[in-house]
Computed example of a mutant assay.
Amino acid sequence: MRIESYRFGEIIIDGKRYTSDVLILPDRVLSWWRKQGHAVTVADLAEAVAARPEMIILGTGAYGVVRVAPEVEKFLAAKGIQLIVAPTGEACQKYNVFAGKHRVVAGLHLTC
């Protein structure tokens, strides 16, 4: 998977355009809904963790509005999964760098 472009409210992954939040797994892209829209909890990452990644990259929106609960980092560390949290533009860049070298999952908030 490769992110071709990202702008507020839109991302293009492998030629396909998405306009809602996405979870990029090693073999597919899913819509990503969280229990609380602007927060990421352990429960929101169940599918991501099931993909057995080495790394999870979370895009917190164009302006970094999404917050990651403190227990998320502890939970992932206990499973040996590295966590990177960044505004979505930066998260997309990091995904493209790491995806060719590691088993990576990305959860990306496309708007605020």
Rank of each mutant, 00 (worst) to 15 (best):
A50R: 12
T41A: 14
R17I: 03
A69N: 15
I81Y: 01
D21S: 01
E73L: 03
K74S: 13
K35Y: 08
P26L: 04
L110D: 02
I84M: 11
H109P: 02
R34G: 04
D14C: 01
A51Q: 00
A62T: 15
E73Q: 11
L30M: 08
R34I: 02
T19M: 14
P53M: 06
D44Y: 02
W33F: 10
V22P: 03
D44S: 02
G80D: 04
A91P: 07
A43W: 09
L25W: 07
K16M: 12
R17D: 00
V85A: 08
C112Y: 00
A69I: 10
V105C: 08
A62D: 12
C92N: 06
P70R: 08
V104T: 05
Y95D: 09
A77Q: 10
G64H: 00
A62C: 14
S20P: 03
G107P: 06
A99G: 15
E73N: 08
D27R: 08
A62K: 11
L76N: 05
A43R: 11
A62N: 12
I57C: 07
Q93S: 13
E54C: 10
E47W: 01
V22C: 06
K16L: 10
I56C: 11
T111G: 13
K79L: 15
A48L: 00
G37V: 12
A99K: 09
R28E: 14
I81E: 07
F98P: 01
W32E: 00
G61R: 00
V66N: 04
W32P: 00
I84D: 05
A50H: 07
S20M: 11
Y18H: 09
V42E: 14
V105H: 01
L108E: 04
Q36W: 11
G89Q: 06
V29K: 02
L45V: 06
A51G: 02
A78P: 03
R17K: 10
R17Q: 12
C112A: 07
C92D: 04
A39C: 13
A78D: 10
L30V: 13
Y63C: 09
Y18W: 08
S20C: 15
I13A: 01
F75A: 05
A69S: 14
I81K: 04
N96I: 01
R103K: 11
Y95R: 08
A39T: 15
E73V: 14
L30S: 10
V72W: 00
V72E: 01
L110I: 06
G61N: 12
G80R: 01
M55Y: 11
H102Q: 13
E54K: 03
V97Y: 12
I24F: 13
V42S: 07
G15N: 00
V72N: 00
A46E: 15
C92S: 13
N96K: 04
A77M: 03
K35H: 15
D21P: 01
K35C: 05
A91L: 12
S31H: 09
S31A: 14
G107R: 00
I13W: 07
H102L: 15
A43P: 06
Y63V: 14
L25R: 07
G15S: 09
E73K: 09
D44N: 06
V42I: 12
G37T: 15
R52Y: 12
G61P: 13
E90N: 08
G59Q: 00
I84Y: 13
W33N: 12
P87V: 09
T88D: 00
A78E: 13
E47G: 03
G80I: 05
A46Q: 14
E71W: 07
L110V: 06
D44F: 08
